[in-house]
Design a protein around this nucleic acid. Sequence first.
DNA 1: CAAGTATTAGTACCAGGTTATAAACTACTT
DNA 2: AAGTAGTTTATAACCTGGTACTAATACTTG
Lengths: 193, 193
Amino acid sequence: MKGSEGRKARRKALEELLRRDPFLTDWQLADQLGVSVATIRLDRMALAIPELRERARIIAAGTYSEVKALRGEEVIGDLVELNLGRDGTSVLMVTDQMVFSRSQIMRGHHLFAQANSLAVALVDSDLALTKTAQVSYRRPVKLGDRVMAKAAVTAVEGYRYQVQVNSFVRDELVFSGEFVVVDVAGKGGAKVD
Amino acid sequence: MKGSEGRKARRKALEELLRRDPFLTDWQLADQLGVSVATIRLDRMALAIPELRERARIIAAGTYSEVKALRGEEVIGDLVELNLGRDGTSVLMVTDQMVFSRSQIMRGHHLFAQANSLAVALVDSDLALTKTAQVSYRRPVKLGDRVMAKAAVTAVEGYRYQVQVNSFVRDELVFSGEFVVVDVAGKGGAKVD
DNA sequence: CAAGTATTAGTACCAGGTTATAAACTACTT
DNA sequence: AAGTAGTTTATAACCTGGTACTAATACTTG
C-alpha cells in the first residue's frame, strides 16, 4: 500500500478534495487522507499546489479583478474610432475573467457592456443614459477572441438616440443590439445625416 | 491635525484604500496613510474591518462556497435565493465604480449584468447562454443604492428558457428585462460533463 | 496647567504555513 | 537475512500577518 501507486492515488484524491473545497488546511487534508501533515506538504510541493492562504488569495483576486474588468471606465474595450453623434468602433480582447471557466465562452453581459458603453459614448452629452435595449447573441465568443463592436446612430428624436451596434469576431457577426439612449443633460450635439 | 477630525478623515481614507484594493497589509496601509501600524490596527478594530487574510477568505468564499450547491460564482451581485429552473433573487450594492462619476448614476451595463447573470444561473445546466434580451431602464439608479433583482422563468420550450427579471431599489422598479436563455449543455438540466 | 484623547511602541502569542534535516518504515532485491 | 532505494514521518527553526494587551508618549483643549 505504501508503493508509488498508493501515492499517485492519494495525490489524485488530494487534488479532488481541494477542487471541491479549496479552503482545507494541510491538517484537515492529512486527516481525511489518513497520512501525516508532512506527507501532505510533500504532495502539495510535488503538485505545485499553494498553501491555503495563497489559494484563498488567488480565488479572491480572480473574482475581484472581474469586478474591475467590468468597471466604470469610459468605454469597455478600446475605442478605435469615434464620430460623436454618428458612429464609432471599439475593440475588446476576451480575457479569462470574462468567460465561463468551464466552457471558455464569454459571458453575455461583457458583450453587452462593450456595446452599451459604446452606444452611450456616441451621444455627445455630459449625461446620456440607456433607456431600452434589444440585443441578440448570434454566436458564442471564446477566450482569446477579439471583438470589434461597430455602433451607429440610426435615428434622433429630440433627446432620444437610437443606436445600432453590431459586434464581430473575425468578420463574423456574434452580437447585435439596438439601444435607445437618452441625453439627459439636454445640450447634446445631435447630428445625424 | 491629530484631533478627531484627522482621525475621521484617515478612517475614511482607510476604507477607500481597502475598497480599491482589499489586499493591502496593515503595514502598507500605515505607510500610505503616514501613521503607525498600531494606529491602523486600532482603526480597523473601530471600523470592524477584518485582517487581510480574512478579507481574502471572505471575498473568495463569497464567490466560491455557494458553488457546491449552485453556480453562485457566475452571478454578479449576491445571490439571495435560487430555485433552479424557477426563480431567484440577487442583491447588488452600487459602488462608485459602477456609476458615472459626474452624475453618480449607475451605468446601464451593470444593471444588465446583474440581471443577465441571474437569468443564466436560473437555468439548471452546466452551460447556459443568453440568446436574446429586451431590457428597459425605468429609473436611474444611484451610488449607494441596493438593487434587488428578482428573476423568474416564465416559459420553457425545449431547451429555450424565457426569463423575466425585474430589479428594484426600495420597492421601486428601476429595470426590467426579458431574457431568452438557451441550455446548450443538454435538455432540461441534463448533465454533460 | 491638567485632563483626556489619540497615537505609538513593545511584548507575548497564534495559525498556517516554508525549509531543511534526520529518522523510520516499506518493498524488493540479492 | 541483509542491503538498499523509495516513501513517509518527525522535529526544529523560521516566516508573515496578524490578535490581544499593556505602557508610554504626544497633542489638543477646557
